[in-house]
């Protein structure tokens, strides 16, 4: 199983717009990606409700995991997303 541990860069944490963008991207991989905060249990990364309920704040570590073909590439993409301040990137 592929895994990445990332520090969440968004100022508001993994809430609101960052949570929306992340879960949409996780769903788009079609890989059943999970996300866990610290040592906590993993939850479905495509579920905005589960992701928000983690209550991940700015600067906290999360671990994302996935299995199957293209898991590494998918996780690299998602890790990059988490390491970006999504609140600063405004929609065009």
């Amino acid at each position: 199983m592929a895994q990445r541990t990332v520090v969440v860069a968004s100022g508001v944490g993994l809430h609101a717009r960052p949570a929306k963008l992340f879960t949409q991207a996780a769903a788009a991989t079609g890989l059943g990606v999970t996300i866990a905060k610290g040592d906590g249990p993993p939850v479905d990364a495509a579920s905005i409700l589960r992701v928000m309920a983690l209550g991940v704040k700015h600067g906290e570590e999360v671990t994302i995991s996935a299995e199957g073909d293209g898991a590494d590439e998918a996780l690299d993409g998602l890790a990059e997303l988490l390491a970006t301040d999504l609140d600063a990137v405004k929609p065009a």
């Binding site: 879960t23 905005i48 589960r50």
Partner: peptide
């Protein structure tokens, strides 16, 4: 509202 829309199609829900 966009985030609320996403909640309405949350796979776990």
């Amino acid at each position: 509202l966009g985030a609320t829309a996403l909640m309405a199609q949350d796979p776990e829900l």
